[in-house]
């Protein structure tokens, strides 16, 4: 049944993908986030959806009648430098070759997605469809799982599809938290009351799914998101009612086991999982201090031959925060995107990574100052800012420096930056014409 749906949809989608690169890039992201192969069992599993959509889109970007341009700007240059630096550190690094190659290739695909999205998303409708693709992938999965959380009285432990980029429950919670503001943007674009109500229900189900992941980082992100929505929204009553709904139903639904787990947020220093992360942060810092320029390369810090010498001398080399003895049998991920980049790419990589985020915030602030408060571009900038904050909140506890959704946000920031420039030049021309 699912195979028939999937194959029919795939062949029907090829027509718009061939015609419009902006649809191609959105479906590329959709396939990356939806992971269609995990939903089907028969012949539909044989198709590499992500690969097909990406190849057609890349060809479309270069061979389209009106050839799309990847224009150089601060953000694109920084992302390019960040990728080049990750490639250089991959060459000099000590990551297990097959694993490092796999992750570098994945990062290349993410950067390619950014380039294509930055080149072809030039109109509001392009951006809207791009965000619909996130809603119909991350939003869809979260809504289905959110229903399961409600139906099971909170007993259902939600995690992503095995083998997917959002497979881990913490990664899934991050992806959902990051997508909620984008659904809120879409909700503002339509006047139809049924559609607005439907999108509000999707947002609430997404919040329940985050609760169902039992992710403590996810809950912290959700709380921060609630506060930000309350501060930023013009419709405070709706936000308060939505928050009360999630809090009361969540409080009623979730089992004691969930509350016990969430209460451990307050005693992080006694928590083994948290202290394991602190150990990984300390080791990433020591690696960067010993290799300040190149770090240990992609997946280098997790390689036992790199990890072990630092693990053996951890508390004597880096004093200040006492940690339990580290694992001497295998290296661990940094569980923090900043320490991840620091350990893998040294200080130059970290500077580039931080600059990408800072420049994105700067461009979003610029767009919010430039566009009138009732315009869709203003609201897009506001919601992208919330998404980026959600990324930062989660990035503190997860190794997600190379993440499809964060680079999709950068592509949308690039769109807004272009809109500011286009509108600015149009304003200047109009004022010059008025002076003649």
């Amino acid at each position: 049944m699912r195979d028939i749906f999937m194959l029919a949809a795939f062949f029907l989608l090829l027509i718009p993908v061939f015609n419009k690169p902006f649809i191609g890039v959105a479906l590329w992201l959709w396939a990356a986030m939806f992971f269609p192969s995990a939903w089907v069992y028969g012949p539909a599993q044989l198709i590499r959806y992500n690969f097909v959509f990406s190849i057609i889109t890349i060809l479309g970007v270069f061979a389209y009648k009106k050839r799309a341009k990847v224009e150089a700007n601060a953000l694109t240059i920084l992302i390019t430098l960040f990728f080049i630096w990750s490639f250089i550190t991959f060459l000099t690094g000590q990551g297990a070759p097959a694993l490092a190659e796999y992750y570098l290739l994945n990062f290349l695909k993410i950067v390619a997605l950014y380039y294509c999205a930055a080149a072809v998303l030039v109109k509001k409708i392009h951006v809207d469809f791009f965000i619909w693709s996130i809603l119909l992938s991350v939003g869809f999965f979260a809504s289905v799982e959110g229903l399961k959380v409600i139906a099971s009285g909170g007993a259902s432990h939600i995690s992503g599809l095995p083998g997917h980029v959002l497979g881990d429950r913490n990664d899934l919670a991050m992806g959902i938290n990051l997508s909620i503001p984008l659904v809120a943007y879409l909700r503002e674009q339509y006047q139809n009351k049924i559609l607005k109500l439907g999108l509000l229900v999707v947002m609430l189900l997404m919040a329940f799914c985050v609760l169902g992941t039992y992710s403590r980082g996810g809950l912290v992100g959700l709380l921060v998101l609630g506060i930000l929505f309350l501060m930023e929204s013009d419709k405070k009553i709706l936000v308060i009612l939505s928050l009360l709904f999630v809090v009361f139903i969540g409080n009623y639904l979730m089992p004691p086991e969930w509350f016990i787990r969430m209460e451990t947020i307050n005693s992080a220093s006694e928590d083994g999982s948290f202290m394991g992360r602190v150990i990984a942060w300390k080791i990433a810092t020591l690696i960067a201090l010993d290799n300040p320029i190149f770090g240990a390369g992609i997946k280098g810090p997790e390689n036992l031959t790199v990890w072990l010498p630092y693990a053996l001398e951890l508390n004597s080399k880096l004093t200040g925060i006492d940690t339990p003895p580290p694992d001497l049998l295998r290296g661990h991920a940094a569980h923090n995107s900043f320490f991840q980049v620091l350990g893998e790419q040294g200080f130059p990589g970290l500077i580039l990574f931080v600059l990408i985020i800072l420049v994105s915030f700067n461009k979003l602030n610029k767009a919010m100052r430039f566009f009138p408060k009732n315009s869709s571009n203003y609201y897009l900038a506001k919601m992208l800012k919330l998404s980026l904050i959600m990324y930062l909140v989660s990035a503190v506890a997860l190794s997600k420096a190379y993440f499809d959704l964060s680079f999709s946000i950068y592509a949308l920031v690039r769109f807004l930056d272009r809109q500011v420039k286009v509108n600015n030049s149009q304003t200047i021309v109009k004022s010059q014409l008025a002076n003649i």
Binding site: M1, F5, A9, I125, F129, L136, S143
Partner: peptide, 30 residues
């Protein structure tokens, strides 16, 4: 139930892809 929702999601995706293609063509004509 999950398969029905899966079908609805794909149906909506296909519908929106054609809808936005039409919108883009209309904008170009104008």
């Amino acid at each position: 139930m999950e398969s029905i929702l899966f079908g609805i999601d794909l149906g909506l995706l296909v519908f929106l892809a054609y809808w936005f293609m039409k919108l883009d063509n209309n904008e170009k004509d104008n």
